[in-house]
């Protein structure tokens, strides 16, 4: 497991911004962590790195926000209010997960059953210094992405 510490929201946003460079169509990132842990701030960073000019607002109430003015489309979901996986089907999640954009899911831990075969999980935690962000990549593409961000060498730890 690789973790980074961020001291303030700006640093959290910056990690997202850097990650955006390495993302490609169909990428899937689950963002887990309590209220106020920095999930939406991180997505703001990804959007910024993707060149989205529109302001990223929390999708808690509306479940899904789409942004189409960046290098790749961004689908920002918050599934906290979901009641069952069936509701993801009603929302047409496959259009997002297997589409042309990047899917970022807040509270993704609630829908692990429908994750794609490869994915990246980010855990956000409160930390005395600020926030701790831990990376759990599944699949080579995501391992390389985490290597780029953290310098951690997965080939040595397999």
């Amino acid at each position: 497991m690789v973790c980074l510490i961020t001291k303030n929201p700006e640093e959290t946003e910056y990690i997202g911004q850097r990650m955006a460079k390495f993302l490609r169509p169909g990428d899937f990132i689950s963002l887990n962590g309590e209220l106020g842990a920095g999930k939406t701030v991180f997505v703001k960073g990804v959007a910024k790195g993707m060149g989205v000019e529109e302001n990223i607002t929390s999708p808690t109430f509306t479940i899904i926000h789409e942004y189409h003015d960046g290098r790749l489309p961004i689908y920002h979901l918050d599934v906290y209010r979901l009641n069952s996986i069936n509701e993801m089907e009603e929302l047409g999640y496959e259009e997002y997960f297997y589409g042309k954009g990047i899917t970022l899911v807040e509270w993704g831990n609630l829908i692990v059953d429908i994750f794609p075969s490869e994915f990246l999980v980010l855990e956000f935690k409160q930390n005395p210094e600020g926030r701790e962000i831990c990376f759990y990549p599944r699949g080579e593409h995501y391992e390389r992405l985490v290597e780029e961000l953290t310098g951690y060498d997965y080939t040595k730890h397999r």
Partner: peptide, 12 residues
């Protein structure tokens, strides 16, 4: 009981 609006709502 779910502590939030349930979007099951959504379409069905």
């Amino acid at each position: 009981k779910f502590g939030g609006v349930v979007p099951e709502v959504a379409s069905r």
